[in-house]
Nucleic acid binder design. Structure first.
Lengths: 157, 157
DNA sequence: GTATCTGCAAACCCTTTGCAATAAG
DNA sequence: CTTATTGCAAAGGGTTTGCAGATAC
């Protein structure tokens, strides 16, 4: 089990996405560029609403609809992925350039710790053999109470 | 890694829930009983809408609101848990009486295989120490292509 | 030029909630 | 009797979509 966050070498997210759009007969627009830059500049995890608000505050004006329309494309291009659904909203994180990691989330305060674990690769390998699946990815979310929230809970009881 | 589905011994879901309600000053109603019986009789995984429809077809008439209001209680009582969110709906499965398991899902056809793995317990234990969290539960979803869908994909290319 | 994309606002759809009537304890 | 629960219908709130104008290519 190790901490995470190494940045891989390679073409930029924009390069990848530009190529993706070209291959699919879609267009590279200033709006798309703005959104992608914002996602990859400032957010590790994000949800549409907070992304939108943070962009507005910076004077970057794109509509929410454009963000919503962009997200499936970014997922298809393997640049981001859904990580969890909470309080009615889907949360995403960017994948490209980051090693895959798992999430440890505090049920109370929603704080998130990231970790990765070599055993996940073993598990995937065994599943491949056992069920004859071609494994694409996994999502591991561990839910618990962080030390702060444990203390608070004790204080209340 | 082992296959799953063993039924543990012990009090029934209704007993557990009755006790839970009493402890919280809540009431045991025919509606609640009907819904719980239906959940535990026929569904391994379920979502509110299909549960509601299936109950209606059997002539069991409870309102959707009552189902929605019951679910958080069942989660709190540790009888069911959220397993994944798909196509705008949360999906649940019952936990009580079943060993915890993980899901291997085919991205193409949504078929689900269940498995459990002792390494998850190890991982939880290590996370407890490392981050000082009190671990409550985890959700592991592995996504891939089942053998049938692999064949289909090959045939098409 | 033409097909795609944008912003807007309305529509959608799952879920939650206010309310008056009902029923559990 | 008191307070929780029910069903209904309306409200919420995140996401999707129809449309007309703008724009990438």
């Amino acid at each position: 089990m190790s901490t995470n966050g190494k940045k891989k070498e390679g073409p930029s997210e924009l390069d990848i996405f530009r190529d993706f759009l070209k291959r699919h007969g879609m267009r590279y627009t200033p709006e798309r560029e703005t959104i992608i830059k914002e996602i990859f500049a400032t957010h590790e995890h994000f949800d549409v609403d907070s992304l939108y608000i943070s962009m507005r505050q910076k004077g970057l004006r794109v509509s929410k609809a454009s963000i919503y329309r962009l997200i499936p494309l970014l997922i298809q291009a393997n640049l981001i992925e859904e990580v969890f659904f909470e309080k009615g909203q889907m949360h995403y994180e960017h994948t490209y350039g980051h090693e895959h990691h798992c999430h440890l989330r505090c049920q109370q305060c929603s704080k998130i710790e990231e970790f990765s674990d070599h055993r996940m690769a073993q598990i995937e390998e065994e599943l491949t053999k056992r069920f004859n699946y071609k494994i694409l990815r996994h999502r591991l979310e561990v839910i618990g109470l962080c030390s702060d929230c444990q203390k608070k809970a004790q204080a209340e009881s």
